[in-house]
Design a protein around this nucleic acid. Structure first.
Lengths: 356, 356
DNA sequence: TTGCATTTTGGGAGCGCTCCCAAGAATTTT
DNA sequence: AAAATTCTTGGGAGCGCTCCCAAAATGCAA
């Protein structure tokens, strides 16, 4: 009935016998415990290499009460965004760092409310995963307080909406947006509109704040009609841009690249030229931004790096006990292409892969 | 030193004491074993619900020799594709089905060759994951034979290149491509080119085969100059299309949507009109296809369903022992929009979300 | 009521590892 | 050279669960 258990399994005990030492000594070698005589260590290591021994993760987990697994949790609300390349990129970074630090990465996508409940309860029981990386959440989500209450080591991607005693990795959304809009102002644009992300998320709020900061910095009154809330998607950007068109903006700052693409499409459908009639700047610098038509000026954020940093913060937390929470905010960088009208000569930049 | 273990942990034993029964009985209740008197079962269940008891996964794994984890393995070669929405979609399907069947999903992305080696060895040792879902591999990859040799239950996404005793979930790439090209022929296109995927993958080969089949079916000689190999990416499609332009095609069948987008861009840069001068059909029906300019005619494949099916085949395998391998090939569907020139009136279809 | 078959329950053993403690070996000190 | 100290090593116990077997409880027929 046991599948594939033809060869009797290799255990610490067996390796120990082969090397002529005890279980404990092998365990010490495996775990790089210092107090093993070099000669013995070498002999044991040789047996390990020759036999291809790997400790049984379940037994190990049971004995030392940790699973060696990091859980990446992406809540339901963000499922719709899941098809945008942001998440894959983030996951790549997270996965890479997990490998480096010898953790297994498990993925928890919540699909229904029911599932969310059940899975959350399981996750919080401390034995399934050692720690959690949590993608940003909308306001009022009960998950964050639950996590804090449960003592589960957690690092959030993106600052939580309500200030919380929790570690997170963020990007300078406010300043990035500010810089983008300032750039448009410098280019002489007068009526700059913005398509925001959902305003129940910090990302949405922060990028709008940056927009406001830039205008205020130039003593320009904010026209609320030029601010439209959307949902980070292409379709959302399209709708929002249509709506904005009535108010005759001469530039649009979209809080995400997909929305910028949607806006681009809306403008094209409406017969407006970009950047001549209306300039556009996005946010993210996703791969397609460079090859959009026209190539999209956008605020680059180091997505891969964010993932890596999140894992490193978490493993730090796991390996050194619960210490004060930490925060990290990565800088953004304005990538000037053609859609903002600053750079009409340059041709499409091809270095899509040089991004971190 | 134990983080957060303030409350002494809830074990089978404790639950048993609370319910006034033995460990074994509680275990039976938890595992839905039939031989428990209804009254007792109810009493135990009540305690479980009230205390919020969940069995410790590590202990469980150790005792019954399975981890309850399904590993999704995506090899290095496909990392570059990882930013295209195909994988997220697939993962969504896989994750959903894993939840339904009570498995944990772990993600294994190989980043370097070294990592690939190390992780593979670990994976094959049978105790880390119960089974593996393997995304398609290029020719000659040693992973498939290794997996077969190791007795690790595996389901591949996409048929393996060399026929192997392995289960897989595929889509009808040949027929899908055939249908697309036949459609172009029916519309009167004469010089139909194709941008293929990598020809060391079945997907690449199959879709090219479909292209050939369609031409042969119309007694049209295949002009090898009209076949350019690429890599499924936007940038690759762009390059390939530039190359094809010299041979004056009046239609291009691109074996993936990103390549179709690249081709679209190349044509625009070259001043060609789509579909008037050149028609284009893609493959995948990724979300952006509907909102491309012009909206992309493409071959839809049920990505989410593929993921679900893969998991179901795997859990079947896991729960009923190793039985003969199985294969499943999902149908494709030609989605006609504007880029093929068949449908110049229709407007952008918005039902991006109705896709399975 | 007794005897037998059948359900239901309890407890021992064991999954493979880590941790602790004590025993043994090696090293240093006097 | 013996004693004190330190470094290595081995083995027991236990992590929390499942599985098996035997004991207890129940049901049924005679």
């Amino acid at each position: 009935m046991q599948r594939g258990r033809n060869v009797s399994k290799l255990t610490l005990q067996k390796v120990a016998e082969l090397a002529g030492v005890s279980r404990s000594t092998v365990s010490r070698v495996v775990n790089h415990h210092p107090s093993v005589k070099p000669a013995v260590r070498q002999r044991v290591q040789k047996v390990i290499d020759e036999t291809g021994y790997h400790p049984d993760p379940a037994a190990r987990s049971l004995a030392n009460q940790r699973s060696g697994i990091i859980g990446l949790v992406i809540p339901r609300v963000f499922q719709s965004l899941f098809t945008d390349p942001y998440y894959p990129r983030l996951m790549q970074g997270i996965s890479q760092a997990c490998n480096t630090h010898n953790y297994i990465l498990s993925l928890f996508l919540f699909h229904t409310e029911d599932e969310e409940q059940k899975l959350t309860a399981k996750l919080l029981r401390q034995q399934l995963v050692d720690g959690i990386i949590l993608s940003a959440l909308p306001a009022g989500d009960p998950l964050v307080p639950q996590l804090i209450g449960s003592q589960m080591p957690t690092v959030m991607i993106g600052r939580p909406l309500e200030a919380q005693a929790i570690s997170y990795v963020d990007v300078s959304n406010v300043d990035g947006a500010d810089e983008a809009v300032a750039h448009l102002l410098k280019l002489g644009r007068q009526r700059i509109a913005t398509i925001t992300g959902p305003l129940n998320t910090t990302v949405g709020l922060d990028r709008r704040q940056g927009y406001r900061n830039a205008l205020r910095n130039d003593d320009i009154a904010v026209d609320e009609a030029l601010i439209v809330e959307s949902d980070f998607t292409e379709a959302g950007g399209y709708q929002a841009a249509r709506q904005l068109l009535e108010h005759r903006p001469d530039a649009i700052f979209a809080a995400s690249d997909p929305m910028a693409m949607g806006a681009l499409r809306a403008l094209r459908d409406a017969g407006r030229r970009v950047p001549d009639d209306i300039a556009i700047i996005g946010f993210d610098d996703l791969p397609f931004a460079a090859t959009a038509h026209p190539p999209l000026t956008t605020v680059r954020q180091p997505i891969l790096r964010q993932g890596i940093t999140a894992v490193e913060m978490l493993t730090d937390l796991l390996e050194s006990g619960l210490r004060p929470t930490r925060q990290f905010t990565a800088p953004t960088e304005l990538v000037i292409r053609q859609s903002c009208g600053a750079n009409p000569k340059t041709h499409v930049d091809i270095d899509v892969n040089v991004r971190l």
